[in-house]
């Protein structure tokens, strides 16, 4: 087991933190559940962790917009800690609501806290979509998918706001995951592409390949009883990277 600890950040309304921590553990990593409020109140510090995951859920009830209040807190109250964390080249993963948080905070795609250049808007169906999807891994440089390029991974999605909207001015979003059809090709067809994502985009990384955001849930495809264990590959890459 690596000595490095991964912070699993959660706030009121986050509801996937425990299984995310379990998946990291399953991959041989060391997770720590960190309450956002404890960071704000100074009971915990981001610098004590070597990586961070923002898990899924409905943080603050999705009030004002999915991930908005979590992101506002990160950017306004924890900006210095966040900037330092990014500058130290530490990996960050945002899953579902966590992906929404990272885009609302400007961490994805441009590593620029407070400058939003991407959003995840309401699904084309205007509904919550609970599905099992296939994801084609691109060959973009990304720590989280190292060695997985060209593979098709199976894991669940469960969200109502997951349609990516990329700002046209030159952002550096690099697509890591595409929703794929039964043949493993990127698809725009519903429900294999569950939210109407243009370009079939399911997950993106930043210019360093260290920050990853994706709508599907790798932690729900990591544990022995689950229908697929493809998600574990992402967490194994994290553990390998932290062990270097």
């Amino acid at each position: 087991m690596s000595e490095a600890t991964t912070a699993v950040l959660y706030a009121p309304g986050t509801n996937c933190h425990e299984e995310t921590a379990a998946a990291i553990e399953q991959a041989g990593g060391r997770p720590a559940l960190v309450l956002l409020r404890d960071l704000v109140d100074g009971r915990a510090r981001l610098e004590d962790y070597q990586a961070a995951v923002v898990p899924g859920g409905f943080s603050y009830g999705d009030h004002l917009g999915a991930g908005r209040i979590f992101a506002t807190t990160l950017v306004a109250r924890l900006r210095d800690q966040l900037v330092k964390f990014l500058a130290s080249q530490k990996p960050i993963l945002g899953i579902c609501n966590g992906f929404q948080v990272l885009t609302e905070a400007g961490i994805l795609p441009d590593r620029a806290p407070g400058e939003r250049a991407m959003a995840l808007i309401e699904n084309q169906s205007a509904r919550f979509e609970d599905r099992k999807v296939r994801l084609l891994v691109s060959s973009e440089k990304c720590m989280w998918t190292e060695g997985l390029a060209g593979q098709v991974l199976e894991m669940p999605v469960a969200h109502a706001e997951g349609r990516p909207l990329l700002c046209e001015r030159g952002n550096r979003a690099q697509v890591v995951f595409y929703y794929a059809d039964i043949e493993g090709r990127p698809t725009l067809e519903y429900p294999a592409n569950p939210n109407g994502a243009p370009g079939a985009v399911a997950g993106v990384t930043d210019s360093t390949g260290l920050v990853l955001g994706l709508m599907p849930h790798p932690e729900r495809a990591s544990l022995p009883a689950q229908y697929s264990r493809d998600g574990l590959k992402l967490f194994r890459n994290l553990v390998r990277w932290l062990g270097k």
């Binding site: 509801n15 919550f128 609970d130 599905r131 469960a158």
Partner: peptide, 23 residues
């Protein structure tokens, strides 16, 4: 109806209400 409800949250689901190859 069923696809609008989360069946896999908590990471404990071994068999959900919809299954088989097509899920």
């Amino acid at each position: 109806a069923g696809s609008q409800f989360d069946t896999t949250v908590q990471g404990r689901t071994a068999v959900g209400p919809f299954g088989g190859k097509s899920h």
